[in-house]
Design a protein around this nucleic acid. Structure first.
Length: 854
RNA sequence: GGGCGAGUGGCGGAAUGGCAGACGCGCCAGCCUUAGGAGCUGGUGCCGCGUAAGCGGCGUGUCGGUUCGACCCCGACCUCGCCCACCA
């Protein structure tokens, strides 16, 4: 039984056992969650669904296999775990592939999904396949349309004309989908341009304030910060300036100048006395009206030039300031000064009111502008280091600090006040005078969802000459994507060429009408898909409210951080909007979020087919087995870290599992290559060896339990390796096969089961058989149905421990003492140690510190 | 320009105020093998002393600070990564 020949004959061969167990788990339906089963606590575990690009790469495994370990860990704790899977099946790559390969996007997508299903199953992951969702199914996108119509009724969806980011390949983009200083498309990398278009928007701005509130959800701080910055809430004041007549003698000059209300937003009302000019965005609606005839030609030229410039050029920080004087003036409401009104492209039309009061003394941009055009710079805020006599000294740079130390100067009756106090006083004064009020501004814009593409959800409205924009009635949903579309060419949306789709009847008047041919941003699909998993076949509603009530929010969500201001923000918006419309109860979608790191190619670049650095897991699985690949990915480093892919070291995981195999099946074997093998450590008898085994096993259980709960898989695996190394040390000795040994082996298998489900299941079954137990059908015989073991605190306690001794912070000695030794006794022992005596060199310690130590 | 994060052996990493380098890779030595790019055991931060067990010193990006004691906390700087970027 224990000869080396026997071991060779029955080696650990993962590829022989893994498919067998995967099939068996599937047959038993072990992971088809009964959502109506309330006998156990629910645990909704969600991992971001994938775009069906064709092949899983190692990065997909990096997200999914630890997630599966979480699922299995929670099942062993008696929870009813739901871990669904699906496909984000709409999107441009399918369309591009269709054009290139003359294949329908549906076929391309479906064959990719089939392949990815096979690959996903090879991980041994316990997905609930009966709840699978595919967003390109009419049964799914129908509800995108239904939700859109409800949003439309509620005023959360609207159509508007405005300048949009336009990608020459992908059409319109949401603001979040334009990246980098050169303003390129997030998907294809092409530089985007601005176009004025009629497009559909969702009113995410309505929820700006609520989206800033993260209380009640446990999300990583970087994501919260990114969303907070993206929403960009600024508190300040809106201030009304009145445009001035040409001369100071009348309210309105002979040319009709003056008397217009010119409103600005400022975060620094405390600097209002320092406003020495105003600046309008070139697109501001008062530009034409405020341009003095003398300046008309110059202004016209500037505005036209600004219009021709790309967003890239205008948004460059380094660029020198440009601008032009309108010839008009405005009156500063606090001191009555006439200040010139300029036009410059550093002021953005889309933020605030599209106009600013310029305070060059206290804003870097205004300072640069004033310098260039010779405009006055007046200091109105001074730090403590500036004496009253220095206030008038010309400034070399803008002073932007706004702390508690700063005081106001040159500010009429407010001079001398602390800046913070002046802020409030000036706002109050403006309100009394009707010239301003406290105000809040946001950077976030409404979500542009129109896409000029074929492979997406049709927006369910028609255009009628009589009735205008008419929503498609619910009973006509879904508006199906037609199959017979010629998408041979580029540029135009192929749907536009499909007359049978476009030409329709107005639901209201019955007259001729035209369908909207834009489709929805695919981020709509992912903004509520976790609700659909709960009732994927429901014909009456997007989500079954009674199931949602029990299962939401999602307990744990796992996926990449690249969606910080897209998917993860849209999902929160949708959840809040759906809650307000009475469709769901919860206002937050995901209670806990974990962002795993990204696995890069071996070259340190993002994995992509174009880089040629994609790592295919299938080959690794074929060679090492799924369990080894799973463990290796967990062992590489902290899960949130990721890093460049390198398979170096995967062999170490294989050796580890081999040792587990041998400990479990061949406890009495000895290693021919090791003279120490099968011999107890010097000075240890069998009883001591058994205590050592029990202690190690239960201490390992204690720490591994914590590590699973905290998703620290790399150290979890390391601790299991330590335990298996210890077992190997005792293999073949008198302690092997003892009760303590057997307990340690079983604990090792149970602890390893969530991470390496196949080998543990195999060994569990073989050990049961060896004990003569029936290991027939039924879920109870599976290791994955066992309860998570409890730590025996008495066993985990050690009787002795090693105490490090420092003198003046330097390690000088280590001493073994019984646990619980009195401090005085310990001190006596330590002070008698020769090394300590030598280190003290006759001196008496001033202070003896007993540090922490468990 | 702003925000966030990270810098530890040849490599991935461990240790978040108390023994730096757990665990693994790689490398070295030995064993076992007909053979091995298989398996097993031991060693392995750097420098110095010693035949040796061992002893001493140095060491967590740089410079300061707090502390009996700092990879860990604080300040400044350097490097790298990610996000945002003329948002008033």
């Amino acid at each position: 039984m224990s000869t080396p020949e026997h071991i060779r004959a029955d080696r650990y061969e993962p590829t022989a056992i893994e498919p067998r167990w995967q099939q068996r788990w599937a047959e038993l339906g072990l992971h088809d969650t009964d959502l109506r089963d309330a006998s156990k606590p629910k645990y909704y575990l969600l991992t971001m669904y994938d775009y069906p690009s064709g092949d899983l790469h190692i990065g997909h495994w990096y997200v999914k296999t630890p997630t599966d370990a979480i699922a299995r860990f929670h099942r062993m704790h008696g929870e009813n775990v739901f871990m669904p899977v699906g496909f984000d099946a709409f999107g441009l790559p399918a369309e591009n592939a269709a054009i290139k390969n003359k294949i329908h996007p549906r076929e391309w997508t479906q064959s990719n999904i089939d392949n990815m299903r096979r690959q996903l199953r090879s991980m041994g992951a316990t997905f609930d396949w009966k709840s699978e969702v595919k967003t390109c199914d009419p049964g799914y996108y129908r509800w995108n349309q239904w939700l859109f119509l409800r949003f439309l009724e509620a005023g959360l969806a609207y159509r508007a004309s405005s300048p949009v980011d336009w990608c020459p390949n992908d059409g319109t983009l949401a603001r979040e989908q334009v990246e980098g200083a050169d303003r390129h498309c997030w998907r294809c990398g092409a530089r985007v341009e601005k176009r004025e278009l009629d497009q559909w928007y969702l009113r995410i701005t309505k929820y700006a304030d609520e989206l800033l509130d993260f209380s009640g959800i446990e999300w990583p701080e970087p994501i919260r910060i990114m969303q907070t910055n993206w929403i960009g809430r600024s508190e300040g004041a809106e201030v009304s300036f009145t445009t001035a007549p040409d001369d100071e003698s009348s309210d309105r000059g002979p040319d009709g100048f003056g008397g217009d209300d010119l409103r600005v937003f400022t975060t620094r009302p405390d600097t209002l006395y320092g406003a020495t000019f105003m600046v309008l965005a070139p697109e501001h609606h008062l530009v034409a009206k405020l341009t003095h005839p003398d300046q008309a030609a110059e202004v016209k030229a500037y505005v036209e030039a600004a219009g021709r410039e790309t967003e890239i050029e205008r948004m460059s920080t380094e660029r020198e300031k440009t601008g032009v004087f309108t010839g008009s003036y405005a009156v500063n409401p606090v001191n009555g000064e006439r200040i010139p009104i300029w036009i410059a492209d550093y002021v953005l039309a889309g933020y605030g009111t599209g106009a600013i009061m310029a305070v060059p003394a206290h804003d870097d941009r205004d300072f640069a502008f004033a310098r260039k055009f010779g405009l006055p710079i007046v200091r109105v805020i001074a730090g403590p280091e500036i004496s009253d006599a220095d206030v008038a000294v010309p400034m070399e740079t803008a002073f932007v600090s706004h702390g508690t130390e700063e005081r106001m100067v040159n500010s009429g009756p407010h001079t001398g006040l602390p800046a913070k106090e002046g802020f409030a006083k000036i706002v109050a004064m403006l309100e009394v005078q009707g010239k301003g009020k406290a105000s809040v501004n946001y950077r976030i814009r409404d979500w542009l969802i129109s896409r000029q593409r074929y492979w997406g959800t049709p927006i369910p409205v028609v255009y009628c000459d009589t009735d205008g924009i008419v929503p498609v009635p619910d009973d006509q949903l879904p508006v199906r994507l037609p199959d017979t579309v010629d998408y041979g060419g580029r540029g135009e949306n192929p749907l536009k060429t499909d007359a049978a789709f476009v030409n329709t009847r107005c639901p209201q008047c019955g007259g001729p009408a035209w369908r909207e041919t834009d489709t929805m941003d695919t981020f709509i699909d992912s903004s509520w898909y976790w609700f659909r998993y709960l009732s994927p076949a429901d014909e009456n509603a997007p989500v079954d409210r009674s199931i949602e009530a029990r299962w939401c929010p999602v307990d744990q969500y796992t996926g990449g951080a690249e969606h910080a201001v897209m998917h993860l923000l849209y999902s929160r918006f949708f959840t809040k909007a759906m809650a307000d419309l009475g469709m769901v109860h919860e206002r937050e979608p995901f209670k806990r979020l974990f962002n795993q790191g990204q696995i890069l190619g071996a070259d340190g670049e993002r994995m992509s087919k174009s880089h040629g650095n994609v790592q295919d897991p299938d080959k690794l699985v074929l060679r090492y087995g799924a369990d080894t690949v799973r463990l290796f990915l967990m062992f590489m480093g902290p899960w949130d870290q990721g890093g460049p892919w390198s398979p170096t070291g995967i062999g170490g995981i294989g050796r580890f599992l081999n040792r587990v195999w041998h400990c479990a099946l061949d406890p009495h074997g000895v290693e021919a290559g090791d003279p120490e093998s099968g011999v107890l450590p010097a000075g240890q008898d069998t009883a001591a060896a058994e205590i050592a085994l029990r202690t190690a096993a239960h201490r390992t259980l204690r720490v591994v339990s914590e590590e699973y709960a905290e998703l620290r898989f790399n150290t979890m695996v390391a601790h299991l390796m330590e335990l298996s190394n210890l077992l190997m040390r005792y293999r073949g000795t008198e302690a092997a096969g003892s009760a303590a040994w057997n307990e340690a082996v079983l604990l090792l298998l149970l602890m390893l089961a969530p991470a390496a489900p196949h080998i543990t299941e195999e060994l569990w079954a073989r050990l049961a058989k060896a004990r003569g137990e029936e290991s027939g059908a039924g879920t109870a015989s599976s290791i994955h149905s066992q309860p998570w073991p409890a730590v025996d605190d008495a066993a985990a306690a050690e009787s002795e421990r090693e105490v490090p001794v420092q003198v003046n912070g330097k390690l000088r000695d280590k001493v073994m003492v019984p646990v619980g030794i009195a401090e005085a006794e310990l001190e006596a022992i330590v002070l008698a140690r020769p090394k300590i005596v030598a280190a003290l060199d006759g001196r008496v310690p001033l202070k003896v510190i007993h540090a922490g130590g468990r």
